[in-house]
Design a protein around this nucleic acid. Structure first.
Length: 509
RNA sequence: GGGCCUGUAGCUCAGUUUGGAUAGAGCGACGGCCUUCUAAGCCGUAGGUCGUGGGUUCAAAUCCCACCAGGCCCGCCA
């Protein structure tokens, strides 16, 4: 009962209900008879509930675990460039969301999709084969990214040739080694930022082991049909919303390839084979069959693909009404002068690695640099556009990742200086305010999961840090058994929150 | 033409889904606080037509309608 109510903003109370919302008098009886309730007060038309101290002291960060298989796909960066800040946003939202989801579902899998048969890779591979590496950078992904800008300028003139390369890639997978070399470097950035994956799927393997059988299956089940007249003559379209998935020349559209993959995630199609390497399942035609069978499918993809995602969602809901399909849409990170464009190459100087290096230079510390960047990105609601600003991204003062770590280190320091054993006696209102964060945590996690939004957790962490710093300046903690106990509990929760935000901790600053 | 997202303090953002207590933070400005657990901190002051106009309601930043501004999407591209 109590769990469903909102956590009160008033000091000393844990929950509050607006009297006007109480439609049924029985609710009042139930609340006042709840053994966990210590006291009810009526103030300004609100029922304020104070719960018993031991209930507060015993609250934990453990949520009810649901038995569902969840997959979340991110960051799926094209393997022909280094990660820029926009890719980093995708990866951080994905990784944080993954960690949050794991608190609620018993099986959560991270998927990274590698588009090794895309036009972008074809352009880069064509250029590389023709001219070799023409940009200088110690990292292959960076150099290739710079070369891509040049390759793109030549695209129109050499389109026929490049499309021919793409066909060769599709037939003989000739770019795989090139792609893996770029990917290997991209993964260094991923590792730097603590971004992980469980399942890596290459488009070439989908093409090889899943696509044709998948399309046959869809035809057999009547989900797609051949068009024999009109504008779309010669294509195969989805029966449900008449979107082209096979062109009249027999090749697959983006939607066609995508839908097959999403259906694989849901367990509707089978055939992908995997080998395991360092705990990661990697698609490989010589491996063994594995099916994910997700109940809930989440894709972290830019908001500009909303319409495309909506089409897939409708199709999935239509075919598999028992599965959930979600598009976690995020706005782009952009520069003052405009959006990132691989074509123009204005991501130069704004790669995820550049960002880290600049942070390291300013703070001379790996964790502080990472914390600043991660918090800056994650505290924005995914739907809001982030206009990139060096000083804001690498802020070391209030409302920053550095502030969060500083607060954490302060907690550790007080614990180190403790002169008594932590043991709770009676809590004053300030102690209760801190213990209440366990209740706030539950509410925030519900919200973060419901709306697929890690910024909820970022805001909670910041509020906790602010509340604690205020508490710290007001009370002497290290010689007070109750306050040391509260500190310990709060620190446990805080550590957990930082973990959810992918922010690594430090022990001193 | 159709659809989606955004608009809250000088700046960057919470709060909008579930209408309700004086609309909250940070940065920047100004003023305080280090012989006491980390001052990358804390406390205080100034700063608001919640894009605009209607509507619903006892009550609207929040719900409904229209409009304005910025961004994005509507292909046998990906």
């Amino acid at each position: 009962m109590i769990e469903t109510l909102e956590v009160s903003r008033l000091r000393g109370y844990e929950y509050s209900i607006n009297l006007n919302r109480v439609k049924d008098q029985k609710i009042l009886d139930i609340i006042s008879n709840d053994p966990r309730v210590e006291r009810l007060d009526l103030i300004n038309g609100y029922i304020n509930i104070r719960i018993k101290e031991d209930v507060l002291l015993e609250s934990t960060a453990k949520l009810e675990i649901l038995n569902k298989r969840v997959s979340i796909e991110y960051p799926s960066v094209n393997p022909n460039k280094p990660w820029h800040i926009g890719h980093l946003r995708n990866a951080l939202i994905g990784e944080s969301m993954y960690r949050i989801l794991k608190q609620r579902y018993n099986q959560v899998y991270r998927i990274d999709y590698i588009d090794d048969l895309g036009l972008q890779v074809a352009q880069s591979f064509w250029y590389f084969r023709k001219f070799g590496l023409t940009s200088e950078h110690p990292r292959f992904d960076h150099a290739i990214g710079m070369d891509y800008v040049k390759a793109n300028q030549m695209f129109q003139e050499h389109e026929h040739e490049i499309r021919e390369v793409l066909r060769e890639m599709e037939e003989n997978n000739i770019a795989r080694e090139f792609v893996d070399r770029v990917l290997g470097d991209q993964l260094k950035t991923a590792q730097l930022y603590g971004i992980g994956t469980d399942i890596r799927v290459y488009e070439s393997n989908i093409k090889l082991d899943l696509f044709n059988q998948g399309i046959q299956e869809l035809k057999r089940n009547g989900y797609v049909e051949y068009v024999d007249s009109g504008d779309l003559k010669g294509t195969y379209v989805t029966k449900f919303n008449r979107k082209v998935i096979i062109r009249s020349d027999g090749t697959a559209t983006y939607l066609g390839k995508d839908i097959v993959f999403q259906l694989w995630k849901a367990g509707f199609l089978s055939g992908l084979k995997f080998v395991e390497q360092d705990g990661v399942k990697i698609s490989n035609t010589n491996g063994s069959i594995y099916n994910l069978n997700s109940d809930i499918i989440i894709n972290v993809i830019g908001i500009e693909q909303s319409q495309h995602q909506q089409e897939i969602k409708e199709l999935m809901n239509n075919m598999l009404p028992n599965k959930e399909y979600h598009h976690l849409a995020y706005q782009r990170v952009r520069l003052r002068e405009g959006h990132f464009s691989g074509r123009k190459g204005n991501w130069l100087g704004y790669t995820a690695d550049d960002l880290y290096n600049e942070g390291y230079e300013r703070m001379n510390n790996k964790e502080l640099s990472l914390a600043a960047i991660k918090f800056y990105i994650l505290r924005h609601n995914p739907k809001t556009e982030v206009v990139f600003d060096w000083d804001k991204a690498l802020n070391t003062q209030g409302g920053s990742g550095v502030y969060l770590l500083y607060t954490y280190v302060r907690m550790l320091s007080i614990e180190r200086n403790a002169s008594v054993e932590p043991k709770p006696k009676s809590l004053d209102d300030d102690d209760r305010e801190l213990m209440k964060f366990y209740l706030h945590y539950r509410a925030s996690m519900d919200k973060a999961i419901k709306y697929l939004d890690p910024s909820v957790v970022a805001e909670l962490s910041l509020k906790l840090a602010e509340e604690f710093n205020s508490y710290y300046s007001k009370h002497r903690i290290s010689n007070n058994p109750t306050k040391l106990f509260v500190l310990k509990r709060l620190k446990d929760l805080y550590e957990h929150l930082l973990y959810l935000l992918t922010i690594p901790t430090v022990t001193s600053i």
